[in-house]
């Protein structure tokens, strides 16, 4: 929709690129008001992500074959990858939180990748989504830490290996870094995706200049490839950071 507008306005006012239009949330079935329950384009693409996950992990494995089909082996690969990650980073006790981590990873991975489908909507480019995801991890880890370790969870901020005089200062720094975690955790993901998509849109906008269009096609293709990498890497980064945070709660205070 944005692309149409770019060309029409390009004719009228010379040059108009609206890279942020792709992030606008619209009600899917007409109307203008967005209530908390309104089905929007974001809802649609979240649902498509759920369908893709179902297709890969449920339909792809329905034959339970000892010798897997291609889809099943991909599903098994993702399973093994995340399972090993959780086990290696959080230790053996952390394995029971594997389904939560897997949920996060699959949602982010598919949201990121579906966002790269032309004219689609990138759910993970919205701070509302990533902040919620990061806060869930932050609150979950904090609550879990206090449940498992009691007040000893605060020992995480008291670096016993440092000289006594430095410990209060380090405690303040640790405390601040602890509360900055959800901020960086969420902004990293949304920022990467938003920036990538906006850059593609801006460069694609230059295609209206006939001279620049061959270069633009090459550049968009190259950045698209980069964005594919970013989509996967950011899903991985979010997940492994979740595991790292989870280790604090599960493994007690060792920093």
């Amino acid at each position: 929709m944005g692309a149409n507008r770019v060309t029409t306005e390009g004719e009228s006012s010379g040059f108009a690129i609206h890279p942020m239009d792709q992030f606008v949330i619209k009600p899917l079935f007409g109307g203008t008001d967005i209530y908390w329950y309104t089905v929007t384009n974001m809802t649609l693409w979240m649902a498509i992500a759920v369908l893709c996950i179902t297709g890969l992990l449920v339909l792809g494995t329905r034959r339970r074959a000892i010798i897997p089909s291609r889809t099943q082996s991909v599903a098994e690969m993702i399973y093994g990858f995340i399972y090993n990650m959780v086990e290696e980073v959080t230790g053996h006790d952390g394995v029971k939180y594997f389904p939560y981590v897997m949920t996060l990873f699959l949602f982010i991975l598919f949201a990121n990748l579906l966002g790269l489908v032309p004219t689609s909507f990138t759910t993970t480019s919205h701070f509302a989504v990533t902040v919620t995801l990061a806060l869930m991890v932050f609150l979950g880890v904090t609550i879990l830490g206090f449940i498992r370790n009691g007040i000893g969870f605060l020992g995480m901020f008291w670096v016993s290996s440092a000289p006594l005089a430095l410990r209060p200062i380090l405690a303040v720094i640790e405390l601040i870094s602890y509360f900055v975690r959800p901020v960086s955790h969420s902004i990293r993901l949304a920022g990467n995706l938003m920036a990538g998509h906006a850059v593609i849109k801006v460069i694609a906008g230059f295609a209206t200049l006939a001279v620049a269009s061959p270069v633009v096609v090459g550049a968009v293709a190259a950045i698209y490839g980069l964005e594919l990498l970013v989509a996967v890497v950011q899903a991985y980064v979010f997940t492994i950071l979740t595991c790292v945070y989870l280790r604090d709660a599960v493994g007690g205070a060792h920093h």
């Binding site: 309104t38 974001m42 919620t132």
Partner: peptide, 19 residues
Amino acid sequence: WPNQIFWLLVTLVVIYLLL
């Protein structure tokens, strides 16, 4: 935001249950 967060939570719960 409320709309986004609501649908995100729905999505996550659905994925979690499927998994």
